[in-house]
Amino acid sequence: MQIFGVDIGGSGIKGAPVDLDKGDLAQERCKVLTPHPATPDGVADGVKQVIDHFGWTGPVGLTFPGVVTGGATVRTAANVDKSWVDTDARTLFSDRLGGLPVTVVNDADAAGVAEMQFGAGQGRRGTVILLTFGTGIGSAVFMDGALVPNTELGHLELGGHDAETRASSKAKEDHDLSWERWAGRVQKYLAHVEMLFSPELFIIGGGVSRKADKFLHLIDGVRAEIVPAQLQNNAGIVGAAMRAAHDHAG
């Protein structure tokens, strides 16, 4: 079974049909740049461009980099245009895609669902936290496999700052940090999250997960196991498709 997944990020919009039996992309993904400013209309145009690239006409799952309630309404928009707040994203995207069935979910929650089903979280019980390091820091918290949605732990205060402004991969680039210095910031952030939630496992996702060998070994002082996401930066696409399949089964 194939369903289309789209991952909307602060820098790029990427998507592909997903083979839900394998938990992997069925075709090479298409990516377009996120418009700036990332307004609802601009992002919807980018999503349509990705969908049209494949000529897709079935259900679509989309991630959004912020809190999404009721499978439709955007409540926060830290890394996209503030005009997203209170937007009915499901209606916006469905209308732009000619009435296709649409599911919208928080981006890190989608990545987490995919990792728990097909990746590094398979079979893991207790508290598992996936953290995506990209333009910001996304989070997905699981207790015995059940998702606690819209946690947004990237906005915890760390040293008087929003954590994602200090420890995201964008912060690494903006401040031209070495892997060692950035890993030190990530370590402080993980220790803070661990103090609050006591997870058994941290899964590190986002684009930086492809370079886990450059920084994970530099992190110590954290008791939880720390592993890179197995689906890497495709986890959001896969998770979005999984949620759409659930919502539009049959």
Rank of each mutant, 00 (worst) to 15 (best):
Gly221Phe: 10
Gln230Gly: 15
Val104Lys: 08
Gly99Arg: 13
His53Val: 03
Arg29Met: 10
Pro35Trp: 03
Leu20Lys: 04
Thr87Met: 15
Arg29Ile: 05
Thr76Asp: 00
Leu130His: 01
Gly58Trp: 07
Lys214Phe: 11
Pro65Arg: 01
Lys14Val: 09
Thr103Arg: 14
Ser139Met: 02
Ile51Trp: 00
Thr63Met: 05
Pro65Met: 04
Val227Trp: 01
Ala146His: 13
Ala235Glu: 04
Ile219Trp: 12
Thr87Ala: 12
Val141Thr: 15
Leu25Asp: 00
Gly23Thr: 10
Ser11Leu: 13
Gly42His: 03
Val68Pro: 00
Ser83Tyr: 00
Gln232Phe: 09
Lys48Arg: 15
Ala191Val: 11
Pro40Leu: 12
Thr165Trp: 09
Asp162Ile: 12
Ala212Cys: 08
Thr151Tyr: 02
Val85Trp: 00
Asp109Met: 03
Asp45Leu: 11
Ala183Trp: 06
Ala183Ile: 06
Leu218Val: 07
Val128Gln: 08
Glu225Ala: 13
Glu115Gly: 03
Ser11His: 12
Ala167Asp: 04
Phe197Lys: 02
His192Pro: 00
Ser94Ile: 08
Ala212Val: 06
Phe64Val: 05
Val67Arg: 13
Val148Arg: 14
Gln230Ile: 14
His192Ala: 15
Ala244Pro: 04
Ser178Pro: 11
Gly206Asp: 02
Gly221Ile: 11
Arg124Glu: 15
Gly126Ser: 14
Leu20Thr: 06
Asp95Gly: 11
His217Pro: 07
Ala171Tyr: 01
Pro65Ser: 05
Gly42Leu: 04
Cys30Pro: 00
Gly184His: 12
Ala249Tyr: 11
Thr63His: 04
Leu196Trp: 04
Leu177Asn: 10
Gln230Glu: 15
Gln2Cys: 09
Gly123Glu: 12
Gly206Trp: 03
Leu158Gln: 02
Val18Trp: 02
Ile203Trp: 00
Gly46Cys: 09
Thr63Arg: 07
Met195Ser: 12
Gly46Trp: 01
Thr87Glu: 14
Gln49Ala: 15
Val193Ser: 02
His217Asn: 12
Ala241Tyr: 01
Ala183Pro: 07
Leu147Trp: 06
Pro228Lys: 10
Leu201Pro: 01
Ala167Leu: 05
Pro65Phe: 01
Asp88His: 12
Ala244Lys: 08
Leu92Lys: 02
